[in-house]
């Protein structure tokens, strides 16, 4: 078994098709998870005990079960119930439900890391609770939330590979097809791993740029 650099060029077009789908899925999953986490964190931090407990139950269930099982549950379960979903949609729902729970915890930690004294101070000078959150808490929490959010984004990008088992023709699925058809396994999997590495590195770099732009200059 030898390694041929030339083969990478020939498998590139097939992998390129998969790459488009992986990018699409990653971007939508990251955005949707970050949005879905907002109502989740509101529920988690609710004053009403029953509501908070329900939110906690959702987060614990989702975080303690594999995303693969969740994907199967949604994909086969909903199609059995008469709602035919594409593998892409089912995967996107599972990715959003799972990572939304993780991101909600990140948001919660970020908000709670801002000292309650600041909220009290804001209320004491006559600001409305909404204004306190908008002007005092949110700008500080946002900056603390960004680094763990970047990590979760990397997790999402890596987890998009799992939709390959639902026959979505993304990067990993295409690589597996190529590996079945050709014998150039070294070239294929090396390229595949490199592509993911580039994706995750680029995303981390992008998030660090955002962090840098939002830094507080003193």
């Amino acid at each position: 078994m030898t390694f041929e650099i030339g083969l990478i060029g020939r498998i590139a077009s097939t992998l390129g098709e998969g790459l488009t789908l992986t990018l699409e899925l990653s971007a939508s999953a990251i955005v949707l998870s970050a949005i879905w986490a907002v109502p989740v964190v509101l529920v988690l931090m609710s004053w009403r005990r029953a509501v908070a407990v329900a939110g906690r139950a959702y987060v614990e269930i989702v975080r303690n079960t594999p995303i693969l099982v969740q994907m199967y549950f949604i994909f086969f379960g909903l199609s059995m119930a008469g709602y035919r979903l594409s593998g892409f949609t089912a995967g996107l729902i599972a990715l959003t439900l799972q990572n939304g729970a993780y991101i909600a915890e990140i948001y919660r930690a970020g908000i709670q890391s801002i000292s309650p004294r600041q909220t009290e101070a804001g209320l004491a000078i006559g600001m409305t609770p909404g204004a306190v959150f908008r002007i005092v808490v949110f700008p500080q929490a946002l900056r603390r939330v960004l680094p763990p959010l970047a990590n979760q984004g990397v997790v999402i990008i890596k987890d998009t590979s799992l939709v390959a088992v639902l026959s979505v023709a993304e990067l990993t699925f295409q690589a597996r097809l190529l590996a079945d058809r050709t014998a150039a396994v070294y070239e294929i999997f090396l390229t595949l791993a490199l592509l993911y590495l580039v994706l995750t590195t680029a995303f981390s770099a992008l998030m660090r740029l955002v962090e840098w732009r939002l830094r507080i200059v003193q």
């Binding site: 990397v154 590979s161 990993t172 690589a175 597996r176 590996a179 070294y186 595949l192 995750t200």
Partner: peptide, 15 residues
């Protein structure tokens, strides 16, 4: 840290 576990499993299985 930058490569999915599934990719590594497939690489092991095929390569």
């Amino acid at each position: 840290r930058g490569v999915p576990l599934l990719v590594l499993l497939f690489a092991m299985y095929y390569a």
